[in-house]
């Protein structure tokens, strides 16, 4: 399973790689990283055929996570990839908006990796 993590913080990559080291080594999950919404879209175009689960931050400079979510859900053929939103602001506005746009999950920072792992396994 391939997971695309979208976050403008570059250290997120290192964190995920270590948090999921066992899963990565076991070959259960494959991670790809994009540092902006635009780059994420570019990646998805390149890897259109692969089954991708997307974990995206909402609050990013440039294209926001919500905009990315909207674009993915509207432009990709059924079934659209699973998109989980992550935000530092656990406000209801963002939550409602994400859900309305078709987000599959809504997580708040700081990420609870145990919960995240469970959610990922459920998708699997």
């Amino acid at each position: 399973m391939k997971v695309l993590v979208v976050d403008d913080e570059t250290d997120v990559q290192l964190l995920f790689e270590q948090r999921f080291r066992r899963e990565i080594r076991a070959g259960e999950i494959n991670f790809a990283f994009a540092h902006s919404g635009e780059k994420a879209l570019f990646y998805l175009n390149e890897h259109a055929s692969e089954y991708v689960l997307i974990l995206s931050d909402i609050n990013m400079p440039g294209m926001s996570g919500l905009e990315l979510l909207r674009l993915i859900k509207t432009t990709y053929p059924a079934p659209p990839p699973v998109v989980m939103m992550i935000t530092a602001y656990g406000d209801t506005d963002s939550y409602d908006q994400a859900m309305q746009l078709g987000a599959d999950a809504f997580l708040t920072k700081p990420l609870d990796f145990t919960t995240l792992k469970e959610k990922l396994k459920n998708v699997l």
Binding site: E9, D11, P110
Partner: peptide, 12 residues
């Protein structure tokens, strides 16, 4: 926000 991010990293 700016403090929360590095703190998350420190914790993680």
């Amino acid at each position: 926000h700016e403090i929360q991010n590095p703190l998350n990293f420190v914790n993680n």
